[in-house]
Design a protein around this nucleic acid. Structure first.
Length: 325
DNA sequence: AAAACGAGCAACCGCAGAACA
DNA sequence: GTGTTCTGCGGTTGCTCGTTT
């Protein structure tokens, strides 16, 4: 959709009140000057560009232009791949909004790219969850509903070191203590996502009780999620992506409902009694935030959306009718 | 056909910490 | 030790254009 030339004329060039500092979109000539400066002196001394009279741009502006658009090997105009998306989602969960840090894991991507990607994703997800049921676009999807496909191959990121990066996502899903077979789990009427109307299955299914089997517990090679939150028929027909699985994991978190504090209880359907499994407690003292360890993302409405999978509604196909189950 | 909406993106701003004088 | 400048980061703004109504 976007092509790199789209913004060349989108607002007038602006000067500050002294008439000296130029703002706004860059011209090719300015880029050229900037590139020449970097060739000579390297990517530094940005302020000297202006002091030498080469450009009427602040050092900040010059640096930003270089870092975000002129640096070699940037993936300008290239959409985030599924793998890149997965990495961002995983690292955001681990690091929080440390875009520059996250970008270091994504060759050719800048912190601005990551930030914009995340921002777009947030808006999309917020809309998905907050759109009233009468809204047209989502409603079409809801009535059509819904098999969530696997995202393309979601392997562990190829981090240069296999230290902290490896641990987090795995620990979110894989814990022998996460599912205690002795613990009976009741189905929870989950707002929106798990709304029976949304998934177009018999609401009674939501009231089924069952005990998760060992087969659903994570193995070492592939993160899985607690299928217990899905009605058994859906467990067999809904192969969720990594991200979707993560969401559903979150839906089990007792704090989850707090994130919907404004929601009318009546929206929760007829099953009033809610019994949720405990959040993951991987190691002692690590039960505060679902095993994420240290990060600056306590569970809040926002952080809930943070973890909503980008592809949740991207690949929707008609669900087989319940009689096909 | 036109208006409204939303996605995607570039570039700005303020702030904080590092480096320098 | 202090003040100033530079650099980098995260948040935000506002623009264009495609899509939907």
């Amino acid at each position: 959709m976007m092509n790199g030339k789209r913004y060349h004329h989108y607002h007038h060039h602006v000067y500050d009140e002294m008439g000296e500092i130029k703002k706004g979109p860059w011209k090719a000539e300015e880029d050229e000057v900037l590139i020449n400066h970097v060739k000579k002196y390297g990517p530094r001394d940005w302020s000297s560009i202006r002091s030498k009279g080469l450009l009427q741009r602040t050092g900040k502006s010059c640096r930003l232009r270089w870092v975000n658009k002129l640096r070699p090997n940037l993936k300008n105009g290239v959409k985030f791949s599924a793998e890149e998306e997965r990495i961002v989602i995983e690292l955001q969960a681990e690091f929080g909004n440390k875009w520059a840090r996250i970008a270091t894991y994504l060759p050719g991507r800048t912190d601005n790219d990551v930030k914009n990607f995340w921002s777009s994703r947030q808006k999309r997800l917020a809309r998905i969850l907050q759109t009233p049921t009468t809204s047209s676009k989502l409603e079409k999807n809801r009535s059509a509903v819904a098999v969530l496909h696997h995202a393309p191959s979601l392997e562990a990121p190829k981090f240069s070191s296999s230290t902290e990066e490896e641990s987090s996502s795995k620990s979110q899903f894989c814990s022998s203590s996460h599912f205690d077979n002795s613990e009976m789990i009741k189905m929870v009427p989950l707002p929106d996502l798990m709304n029976p109307n949304l998934l177009n299955f018999d609401p009674n299914l939501l009231q089924l009780q069952f005990t998760p089997s060992e087969e659903n517990i994570c193995n070492e090679s592939q993160p899985q999620f607690p299928f217990s939150v899905l009605p058994p028929p859906l467990q067999s027909v809904l192969p969720l992506s990594f991200e979707s699985q993560e969401l559903v994991t979150r839906l089990e978190d007792p704090n989850f409902l707090d994130a919907f504090g404004h929601a009318d209880a009546s929206e929760l359907g007829s099953v009033a009694h809610i019994q949720l499994v405990q959040p993951y407690c991987g190691q002692e003292g690590d039960c505060q935030n679902g095993g994420r360890g240290e990060n600056d993302n306590p569970m809040t409405p926002d952080s809930f959306f943070d973890d909503f999978p980008a592809d949740m509604f991207d690949h929707i196909e008609p669900l087989p009718s319940p009689s096909d189950w």
